[in-house]
Simulated assay, not measured.
Amino acid sequence: MKLDKTWQDMRQIQPQVMTMLQNSITKNRVAHAYIFEGDRGTGKQEVSKTFAKSLLCEAPVEGYQPCEKCKNCKRISSGNHPDIHLIEKDGISIKKEQIKSLQEEFSKKSVEADRKVYMIMDADKMSVGAANSLLKFLEEPTGDTVAILMTEQFQRILPTILSRCQMISFKPLSPENVKRKLMEQDLDPQMAAIISHITQNVGDGIDLSHDEWFVQGQKIVVKLYEVLKQNSLKALLFLQTDWFSHFKEREQVDRGLDLLLLIYKDLLYIQLDKKDLVVFQNKLKEFETHALHLSPRRLAEHMEFILEAKRKLMSNTNPQLLMEQLVLNLQEGS
Rank of each mutant, 00 (worst) to 15 (best):
S24F: 11
D122P: 03
M18F: 07
S127Y: 07
G63L: 07
F106Q: 06
I25Q: 08
V47T: 13
C70G: 03
I25R: 02
G41V: 07
F106H: 11
M20D: 15
S48T: 03
F36A: 06
I25H: 03
E62C: 07
E97F: 12
R40D: 14
Q103A: 14
Q103L: 05
V117Q: 10
K116C: 09
N23V: 00
L56K: 02
T19E: 15
F106S: 05
K44Y: 11
F51P: 00
N132Q: 15
G63T: 07
E37F: 10
Q65F: 05
K49R: 13
N28S: 09
K27H: 12
V47A: 13
I87N: 04
E105Y: 08
A59H: 10
L86S: 07
K53N: 02
K71C: 07
H81D: 02
N23S: 14
I35K: 09
G38T: 05
P82E: 06
K116Q: 15
E62A: 14
N132I: 14
A131D: 02
Y34R: 05
K69M: 10
I84Y: 00
E112L: 15
G91C: 06
E104L: 12
V128M: 15
N80E: 02
E88A: 06
M20Y: 13
F51H: 00
L102W: 01
T42G: 12
A113L: 04
S101T: 09
Y64L: 07
K69F: 04
K100P: 06
M121F: 14
P60M: 08
Q16D: 14
V30R: 06
R29D: 01
M20Q: 14
F106P: 04
K125H: 15
G79N: 03
T50I: 12
N80T: 00
V30Q: 09
A31Y: 05
A31D: 06
C70R: 01
L55I: 10
K108V: 03
D90H: 03
A130R: 06
I25M: 13
K27E: 10
E104N: 13
K109N: 10
L21M: 06
I35V: 12
K109F: 08
M18L: 15
I94W: 06
M126W: 08
A59V: 02
E112P: 02
A33D: 06
V61Y: 02
D90E: 14
N72R: 00
Q14G: 08
R29Y: 01
K74S: 10
L55S: 09
E62H: 10
R40N: 13
G43L: 11
A31R: 04
S93F: 11
H81T: 01
C73M: 00
K100I: 14
L86K: 04
Y34G: 13
V17Q: 09
S93I: 10
K96Y: 13
V47M: 07
V17S: 11
S78E: 13
Y64T: 04
L21D: 04
I120L: 14
N80L: 04
E68R: 00
A131Q: 01
M18D: 08
S54F: 00
I99W: 09
G41W: 12
R40H: 11
I87W: 03
Q45T: 14
M126K: 11
S133Q: 15
L21P: 05
V30I: 12
V128R: 14
V128S: 15
